[in-house]
Nucleic acid binder design. Structure first.
Length: 431
RNA sequence: GGAGGGGUGGCAGAGUGGUCGAAUGCGGCGGUCUUGAAAACCGCUGUACCGCGAGGUACCGGGGGUUCGAAUCCCUCCCCCUCCGCCA
């Protein structure tokens, strides 16, 4: 949620920055009009309430003295006042509702270092390693999964429909080994605290991270048994960000507690409604995938240093696994709803001949914190909103693709990178 | 799923229609005293919004209602605890 005080003070700057996010600048005018209307109603209603409260106190005093008739006279007077207050409060609730609906639907504003423009303005800020070369004809992950029986696409689709995977044998073991490897890396080397969250969250958590209201159509809603009333109250998480970033919802933290650094494994459920290419076969775009997520809650002045550190933490994964990747700084038009600045990490998949997005690392600044009312008590300046950061560390299905395609060998086996070997208890998935 | 009991400030815990944003205790902060510390004593100690300000308003799990007036009465939802049933 944007800061209304900033918008009041700098409406023109806000318009320009909002336009860079692909929103009409006129939304700012609408917002300010609603804000003004809302505040006028608040002032008027509260003035009347003050009068009513004062008279009510007098009535109390009169009753105490046994002056019943005088009290009754005052009651009639106040009754009318009360009605006025009620109607003003109703108007106020309506104005508040309209104001909130609008401000919740506006995306975060981009940090000044973010290139303005659409997807084509994304900037490649780093390339690590080189595209591997093969002295044989490398296979794609579909062939490798079939020949090594890593994934049974047909049975996955039979069980849950297209876009759902059945990992089998070495495939299942590799997936589990990578999860364990990622968690251990971030816990032991990068200082994150592991949490294991619910995989279902309330709608308010989805709103807190900015998934809702915009991406309601992308979520899996959960119903309890046959009770249709329960539908729409809880959702399968699209990312562990949804539960973990909300850990400190409605809390005021102590300054010394910051920074908070969490990592969490979870499956991620995405309806991908309207998206092209959720196929029966393939792992690039699926309805359910595993991910290890990183979340930080930090003081505002450290937000961007922490973002760079988190990016390095995610990159470390690919470096240790010997994978070629590049880092993109996303443009203002290509960033997610809640982000003020985002880096995407794209890993090379030789069989695809393309880069795959495996991580998105963002600083949401105070956008999420304001939505979820996460604050911290500062030594100076009272209660403040922290910056909340999230990053994939990293998404598994696409990492799986890159790993097997990159480390495939002429005989059809997969060489396992050294850091992963203890987890998989082998240095090679045999052909 | 059945029966019962609860949700009040950082914590514990009073308060059953008015002078209650809320007693008291603990904790925390500041001070007095002390060579220093402890003890004792004194003071302060929630959040958000409106207002240039003085100040005002709201919040006692959430929402709604009754009333001139609600922490207190009514309805509803959520959550927690105990017992029974079922169950990984």
């Amino acid at each position: 949620m944007l800061d209304i005080k900033y918008i009041r003070q700098e409406p023109d700057a806000a318009k320009e920055r909002l336009a860079a996010r692909g929103e009409e600048g006129s939304r700012i005018d609408e917002l300010l009009a609603l804000d003004e209307q809302r505040r006028a109603l608040v002032t008027e209603a509260e003035t009347l309430q003050a009068t009513r409260n004062a008279v009510s106190k007098e009535i109390g005093a009169l009753m105490g003295q046994g002056k019943k008739e005088e009290a009754e006279a005052k009651k009639t007077e106040t009754r009318e006042l009360g009605n006025k207050v009620d109607s003003l409060n109703a108007q106020r609730a309506e104005a508040d509702g309209a104001f909130n609906d609008l401000i919740l639907s506006l995306p975060n504003l981009a940090h000044e270092s973010v290139p303005v423009g659409d997807e084509s303005a994304n900037a490649e800020v780093k390339v690590e390693g080189k595209k591997p070369t093969f002295d044989f004809n490398p296979k794609g992950h579909l062939d490798l999964c079939d020949s090594l029986k890593l994934i049974d696409f047909e049975r996955g689709a039979k069980l849950a429909g297209s876009g759902f995977l059945l990992y089998t044998g070495w495939g299942a073991r590799l997936e589990r080994a990578m999860i364990q490897f990622l968690l251990d890396l971030h816990i032991h080397e990068h200082g994150y605290t592991e949490v294991s969250p619910p995989f279902i969250v309330k709608a308010e958590c989805m709103e807190g991270v900015g998934q809702f209201p915009k991406f309601l159509d992308q979520a899996y809603a959960v119903q309890e048994g046959l009770d249709g009333e329960t539908l729409g109250k809880r959702y399968l998480i699209p990312t562990a960000e949804a539960p973990v970033a909300n850990l400190h919802r409605d809390e005021i933290l102590n300054e010394e507690e910051l920074p908070k650094k969490y990592c969490a494994y979870s499956p991620c459920f995405r309806a991908e409604a309207g998206a092209a290419g959720v196929a029966t076969r393939g792992m690039i775009r699926v309805h359910q995938f595993d991910k290890v997520e990183l979340i930080k809650v930090v003081k505002p002045e450290t937000g961007y240093d922490e973002l760079e550190a988190m990016l390095a933490n995610a990159e470390k994964v690919l470096q240790l696994l010997g994978l070629h990747y590049r880092v993109l700084l996303l443009s203002s038009g290509d960033m997610g709803f809640a982000a003020a600045k985002t880096y995407d990490i794209e890993v090379w998949a030789p069989g695809q001949g393309s880069y795959l997005e495996v991580s998105s690392v963002s600083n949401t600044e105070d956008f999420q914190a304001r939505r979820m009312k996460t604050r911290f008590k500062a030594e100076q300046g009272g209660n403040q909103l922290p910056h909340i950061l999230n990053g994939s560390g990293v998404a598994l299905a696409r990492l799986f693709v890159s790993l097997i395609e990159t480390h495939q060998q002429a005989d059809g086996s997969i060489a396992i990178p050294e850091p992963l070997q203890p987890y998989l208890r082998t240095d090679c998935i045999p052909a």
